[in-house]
Design a protein around this nucleic acid. Structure first.
Length: 353
DNA sequence: GAGAGCGTAACGGTTACGTCA
DNA sequence: AATGACGTAACCGTTACGCTC
């Protein structure tokens, strides 16, 4: 679908893609602004790309749940990714939100606690690697990290530590699971006994975990409560599910991404409908303009009597009304002007453009 | 059985923020 | 108070595995 937008004298166009984030990125790249949308279709999902202006206007004009198409075209002012997310109710004020916000002081405020915990596990991992001297073989499956590390590559180093932590906890889980007769890192342990495969590069790989329905249900429940977890919650949940905390963390990351993608898709669908509605409206207005021009050329007398356009503005909400009702009202006004030489009723004010 | 498509677990890179020296 | 180092967590884009058809 191709959507043409005109901002001032610089018409832009872009395509809607199937995948939402791609569409948003396309919008960002091609057009350079974000479109904040709202309405009944935009439910309680969260999207960083979608922001809404005019909240104050919304508060002062009519009810916020009016099914009025509102497209706010904002200059693209990228918000730092890790800035606290703008509450959804501020961006999409007409929506009711569920518990999407983080628990106060949840993640970052308790980072030190996590740091302590991680230091403990890292110490254990380091000790293990020292004992066994097998740190290289404990690297993450898809990691390209070799046993030789650039000491300046801190991010890689941190990741190596994280991997070590993962392996450390996994090993513990394996022990626990083995005690219960289960299968290694996989809580299901059905067809793979948690045994890693050794690839040609010598790294151990873990077969991909598929969460059980029970695990997924519990995770979903927790996600509904809070879409982020603090370290303690993460550990508790991991313990409850017999997973590594890293797995819980990744699950929440992916779940947030899926939520966002879903929201973007919903938003795109809504934009499509807006586009179709506006296109139809535009077609209708152009037709009407054409008819009025014809009428004007054939009967110039009415030029002094008729308003130039049928766009009307509602007194109560100060919105330009372009609906069929408004058109009907305008038509009625025209007819009234034709016959009585008086302006239309006070219900609508005719604006000349 | 092979392969395409889809869902998603997991990863690498980046960034922001808090803490500490 | 200002600053740099460090650790942590969140996010994004991507990869690859497991499953279904």
């Amino acid at each position: 679908m191709e959507l043409a937008l005109s901002l001032g004298d610089t018409p832009k166009s872009f395509s809607f893609l199937d995948k939402g984030s791609a569409a948003i990125n396309r919008v960002k790249n091609d057009v350079g602004f974000c479109m904040g949308i709202g309405g009944p279709l935009a439910k309680d999902f969260e999207s960083d790309q979608i922001r809404s202006l005019g909240d104050e206007r919304e508060n002062t004009r009519g009810s916020s749940d009016e099914p009025v198409v509102q497209l706010d075209l904002l200059p693209l002012c990228p918000v730092p990714r890790n800035q606290p997310a703008v509450p959804l109710e501020l961006r999409l004020p007409w929506l009711l939100t569920r518990n999407l916000s983080s628990e106060p002081g949840s993640s970052k405020a308790q980072g030190r606690g996590a740091e302590v915990l991680n230091r403990v596990s890292l110490a254990a991992a380091d000790k293990r690697s020292e004992d066994g001297g097998a740190s290289a073989s404990l690297s993450s499956p898809s990691s390209t990290i070799s046993s030789f590390q650039n000491p300046l590559d801190l991010s890689v180093d941190r990741r190596r530590k994280r991997d070590l932590e993962t392996i450390s906890i996994c090993t513990n889980n394996e022990r626990d699971t083995e005690r219960r007769g289960g299968g290694g890192c996989s809580s299901r342990g059905r067809d793979h006994e948690g045994e890693g495969e050794e690839k040609e590069n010598g790294f151990m790989t873990q077969k991909k975990l598929r969460l059980s329905k029970e695990q997924s249900a519990i995770l979903e429940d927790r996600f509904r409560e809070h879409n982020t977890l603090n370290p303690k919650q993460k550990l508790d949940l991991a313990k409850q599910l017999n997973l590594r905390s890293r797995q819980v963390e990744v699950w929440f990351q992916n779940r947030r991404a899926r939520t966002k993608l879903k929201q973007t898709e919903v938003d795109c669908e809504y934009l499509k409908r807006c586009y179709e509605t506006l296109t139809e409206e535009n077609r209708r207005l152009q037709k009407e303009v054409h008819e009025l021009k014809v009428l004007n050329t054939s009967q110039p007398f009415y030029n002094k009597l008729l308003p130039a356009t049928t766009l009307t503005m509602c007194f109560s909400c100060e919105r330009v009304a372009t609906t069929a009702a408004a058109a009907a009202a305008a038509t009625a006004a025209i007819n009234t002007a034709r016959t009585t030489r008086h302006t239309a009723a006070n219900a609508a004010t005719t604006t000349t453009y």
